[in-house]
Design a binder for these strands. Structure first.
Length: 501
RNA sequence: GAGCCGUUAGCUCAGACGGUUAGAGCAUCUGCCUUUUAAGCAGAGGGUCCCGGGUUCGAGUCCCGGACGGCUCACCA
């Protein structure tokens, strides 16, 4: 048994076709958007509208309808908003009104007519011609509650964005954020690059990749987990400032903070250090807040986030030493026994055997996990966390003073990692040793350890300028700037299991 | 991957203890209605109660299994 509504609409469609009307023509060109019409006439007084002889022509979807038998009000939505249309039988004629009766909420129509104000003062177009441009066979969701079922909203985003204006606004903001990012870097002399998404070695991050296959070449390829190694090749190649905004893919779990494919911004600047990037990052976030939210203090998930610089800068050894009462020297020496004792006090997953998994690099991994367990969730206000263990940062420059650590920071806002940056390692021999260490971790069972990339090492041997680089998760940035709780609310078509339709 | 919660008309939601024929609003259909805006009035139709088993005289409701979703955790350096 079919749904009543679809059957009724199919019958109207058939009736239209029978009477020689094409229900899906493409012969109407709107000359105005609803926003343009409002701008032209909203302030005009009734006398001026009365003497106005110009007709406007607009097109859009019928979002609501109030029917009076021989007249009808409806709201038409186009890309710029909604405008009320008034249809009167004695104006458009009996035949046209008969066709109009076959139209429904959800249909796409073209209208030409004259603006006027209703009794309640709403700018309205009195239609003198009206044509169907696309018959909808399925009904729109309820006008009052819209579409709230989250599964339906994600799977049928086209209905979500039709029915829910706030959702459209979030994605408009997302587009503006990406445009602002691009402008920010282009204005500062960065070259915008497009590097391979299909890679034969998935490097630049610690993550498991998706695998695909090239038939003609009969070779497996990976979807990239980061553009890093290609952007650094461009530093070697003479592009001193380079950035890329693009999709990366990580074969991991799905959550409110993780989508298997997400958008990453990476940028690299020669002759700069990670410290320079702290300043640049503050500048960038303030710029985005000004442009998108028009306020440097944001609401995000009930927190007030104060983006006004300077932001707090702390180091991992400091935080862990303080929270877990481990002497700072023991932390800086990566004293495995002291860190192990602290980890046992914290308990939970930290009880696992790091030595078996990471060998002599165990203390570095353990320290990072300690930091994440005790300090990360508390970092609500923007905080630069620096001084990462060298073992967990195979592509970062060693700190001159503390060679167990690298010149790296991560930015945390709202308890989430928002950015990751470091001074780049440009010593090809050190880089080779670090990647070899990663291979040992891989052999020991760490399937997220970094892969060897001989061409990348060859590039470094040509000489890479000293540089600093940073990656920013664009989806999380959009979440923050739109006060969204789930990454699925800022990705148009988030990943879902297959649905039986 | 684990725990908790959810899935009832196109949409938004009710359905005590297991008890006749599963309800409401919007939407749809019919009639009336030419300044309404959650238009109004009168009437009508619309259900694989997510799927499959089971218990029971009887299951939307209880039990088991599964699908999909949400949240939390794990994973995500």
């Amino acid at each position: 048994m079919e749904g009543d509504e679809r059957e009724a609409r199919r019958q109207k469609l058939a009736a239209l076709r029978d009477s020689g009307v094409n229900p899906y023509p493409n012969d109407f060109q709107p000359r105005h958007t609803t926003a343009e019409i409002k701008q032209l006439f909203e302030g005009a007084d009734d006398v001026a509208l009365e003497s106005n002889t110009e007709t406007v022509e607009l097109a859009g979807r019928i979002m609501s309808q109030r029917d009076f038998g021989k007249a009808s009000f409806l709201h038409l939505m186009d890309r710029t908003g909604q405008l009320q249309i008034y249809v009167k039988r004695n104006v458009i004629g009996d035949d046209a009104f008969g066709l109009f009766k076959q139209m429904d909420r959800g249909d796409i129509i073209g209208v030409s007519g004259k603006p006027f104000h209703t009794k309640t003062g709403e700018l309205t177009i009195e239609a003198n011609r009206l044509s169907l441009l696309g018959k909808a066979l399925r009904p729109l969701p309820e006008k009052w509650h819209g579409l709230t079922d989250v599964e339906a909203r994600y799977r049928q985003r086209y209905v979500d964005t039709l029915a829910n204006e706030e959702v459209r606004e979030v994605f408009h903001k997302r587009a503006r954020i990406i445009q602002a990012l691009r402008r920010f870097f282009v204005e500062r002399g960065y070259f915008e690059a497009e590097t391979p998404i299909m890679q034969s070695i998935a490097g630049g991050a610690a993550a498991r990749p998706f695998v695909t296959h090239h038939n003609a070449l009969d070779m497996d390829l990976y979807l990239r987990i980061a553009p890093e190694l290609y952007l650094k090749r461009l530093l070697v190649g003479g592009f001193d400032r380079v950035f890329e905004i693009g999709r990366v893919f990580r074969n991991e779990g799905v959550s409110t903070r993780h989508n298997p494919e997400f958008t990453l911004l990476e940028f690299y600047q020669a002759y700069a250090t990670y410290r320079d990037l702290m300043d640049l990052t503050e500048e960038l976030f303030v710029h985005l807040a000004d442009e998108i939210v028009e306020n440097r203090v944001l609401r995000w998930e009930g927190h007030e986030i104060d983006l006004r610089p300077p932001w707090r800068r702390v180091s991992i050894p400091e935080l862990v030493s303080e929270r877990l009462s481990v002497p700072i020297d023991a932390v800086l020496d990566l004293d495995h026994k002291a860190l192990r004792a602290a980890a046992d006090r914290v308990g939970g997953p930290l009880r696992q055997d790091y030595v078996q998994k990471y060998g002599d690099a165990a203390a570095g991994y353990l320290l990072l996990d300690l930091f994440e367990a005790v300090a990360e969730p508390e970092l609500v206000q923007p905080t630069f966390v620096e001084r990462y263990p060298v073992a967990v940062s195979p592509l970062a420059r060693r700190n001159a003073e503390h060679p167990n650590f690298v010149d790296r920071f991560e930015l945390f806002i709202g308890g989430r990692e928002m950015a990751n940056a470091f001074s780049e390692l440009n010593d090809p021999e050190d880089q080779r040793q670090r990647l070899e260490a990663q291979l040992r971790h891989r052999d020991a069972g760490d399937d997220e350890a970094h892969a060897m990339d001989e061409d990348f090492l060859r590039a470094l041997e040509h000489g890479m300028p000293p540089a600093a680089g940073e990656g920013i998760g664009v989806d999380r940035l959009v979440m923050m700037l739109t006060d969204s709780a789930s990454i699925r609310d800022v990705i148009l078509f988030p990943h879902m299991r297959v649905e039986k339709i």
